[in-house]
Design a binder for these strands. Sequence first.
DNA 1: ACACGTGGTACTGTATACAAGAGAGTATCC
DNA 2: GGATACTCTCTTGTATACAGTACCACGTGT
Lengths: 244, 244
Amino acid sequence: MQSIARPQNLADAVYEQLKSELFEFQLLPGDRFTEIEVAERTGASRTPVRQALYRLQREGFIDVNFRNGWEVRPLDFDQLDALYEMRVLLEQTSVRRMKKLPAEELKAILRPLEKVWCVNSSKRSHDAGLVAQWDEEFHCALVAASGNSEFVRVHREITERIRIVRRLDFTQQARIAATYAEHSAILDALGHRAFSAVADQLATHIEVSRVEARKLTLLKLQNARKNFSPNKINHRTVPVSAGV
Amino acid sequence: MQSIARPQNLADAVYEQLKSELFEFQLLPGDRFTEIEVAERTGASRTPVRQALYRLQREGFIDVNFRNGWEVRPLDFDQLDALYEMRVLLEQTSVRRMKKLPAEELKAILRPLEKVWCVNSSKRSHDAGLVAQWDEEFHCALVAASGNSEFVRVHREITERIRIVRRLDFTQQARIAATYAEHSAILDALGHRAFSAVADQLATHIEVSRVEARKLTLLKLQNARKNFSPNKINHRTVPVSAGV
DNA sequence: ACACGTGGTACTGTATACAAGAGAGTATCC
DNA sequence: GGATACTCTCTTGTATACAGTACCACGTGT
């Protein structure tokens, strides 16, 4: 979707790797780890590792304890709710602003989205990762239509922040089907310039996915905790200064 | 206003110092500098300096050129406009949500603000820095009333980002007077629960200050550039690899 | 006079060495 | 036995050393 930004320096590479470990729940909320551990795991030295860690800290994923290791921040569902609210606000505002767009421009925005979402069921994807990516692109495209670069930037940051729970929604085929249905309905209504109606549809659409994602996240966390092996505990999750 | 966060480590201290140099227009858009220069100026080593620089980069104030020094990013008025739009959206949304607040809570929010803004002219401050700070606190308080922590966080980030131009607005006594008048009018209307009216007032209030700030910024930049001394050029703003 | 190739310098990116303190574990005392 | 003080290790924070290359300047050839 947006700037791919392949990492050219080690710090970015480490950042990407850690983030993916967070998203795959290989690093679980509450897990503790040290800079040296990460450095050995990634093959980099502490310098780029620290750059990556501090970036993740500023983005809210991890915490540093003064001279006492790092820690994966627990998922804060209140904060996630606030992020989802902000997301709704941005997307609704962007959609409402579409009424200023001439028909031509609106069509140009909708056409590529319709190619993905308004297809009969044989042509639909069942791949969770792919649908998750398309879903993000769909909603980002709505905000991009606002023409406000800061709406886009903030919305993208929110997308990054909630992805960890949002993507779980597409692990269920029924939810993928619902997403197809709702997205094509939204595109339909946009084609008829029913912007206020779309704003309402969006709120519902996002709210349902928020609730589903929360349920699945709680399940996922329970399972992930069950799968602890003693090795893994010793390797990573034990309090840092506990020795062997 | 929000968390004071006195810097305990060098990186934060350097960050604060650099940011204040940016805000005071001691570091001007287009200025180039190196990590070692900053290290010598602040007394820290390159490590914390780099931490601070990368933070400022992520926040959009400066750019790094690969193996070729750092550079103060030019002020982008289109981006500032987008930030102001976002600010209006957040503050209007927060104000509109106040209608859900019971009278008691609303009063508790308004009272401290009225103490600052609804005072007769003899008690008003004429200090630009102080009024600028109170102004930020006023608008942040409105958003805080929304109860959405992400609204607050994003709004605070925007406040940090636009402060560099916004504060100039209060260097004119006439604008300070206008701010007092408009803030007290807004508080009045809020006391009467005229939330939609306040939303309109806010949009106008912010829009006027945006335009004023832009005018003053352009002036300030012109003056700052005039005051270049050859020494200063050699010291800081010449292309990095130019030797003596 | 101008284009092109080459060398040197200065800059960031990365690795490593050093400093200081937080915390677990142990020994000691009552 | 329990509480307290202390030591020792491990951690992050900071400083510095090293590596690689982008850019400028100069020189050379045409």
